[in-house]
């Protein structure tokens, strides 16, 4: 079977409510609040809406938490270091 499905490129205009984000990522609202408090994710300006691309961050955070038995600040630290590594790697690629 082969068909052409409808596609969207996610940008700032695609948002989810906190409840939708929780349902999509199978997490609790309190967990999302903790990640917001740690600065791992942030709602779009002025509210309880999140960019849909946040799903990617949430899933990574959730995996790190589970696979390394991390607490919330451990997750935040790992996420910060990983994004710093990404930044340095792309800087290195650019200079090469």
């Amino acid at each position: 079977m082969s068909k052409e499905p409808h596609i969207d490129i996610l940008d700032e205009s695609h948002t989810l409510t906190v409840e939708e984000l929780c349902e999509r990522c199978r997490v609790e609202v309190t967990w999302v609040e903790e990640m917001v408090a740690q600065g791992v994710i942030s709602p779009v300006e002025g509210g309880r809406q999140f960019a849909e691309v946040t799903i990617r961050t949430v899933r990574t955070a959730r995996r790190l938490e589970r696979d390394f038995a991390l607490n919330a600040s451990g997750v935040a630290l790992a996420m910060d270091l990983l994004s710093e590594i990404d930044r340095l790697k792309s800087e290195l690629r650019r200079r090469r």
Binding site: D8, I9, L10, E52
Partner: peptide, 23 residues
């Protein structure tokens, strides 16, 4: 196995996320 025909939009950049609704 599911086979999909995917239209790669002009100007797509690395790291962008493409959503296929209902798939």
């Amino acid at each position: 196995d599911k086979v999909l025909q995917l239209k790669i939009p002009k100007g797509i950049i690395e790291g962008k996320i493409i959503r296929l609704k209902g798939q």
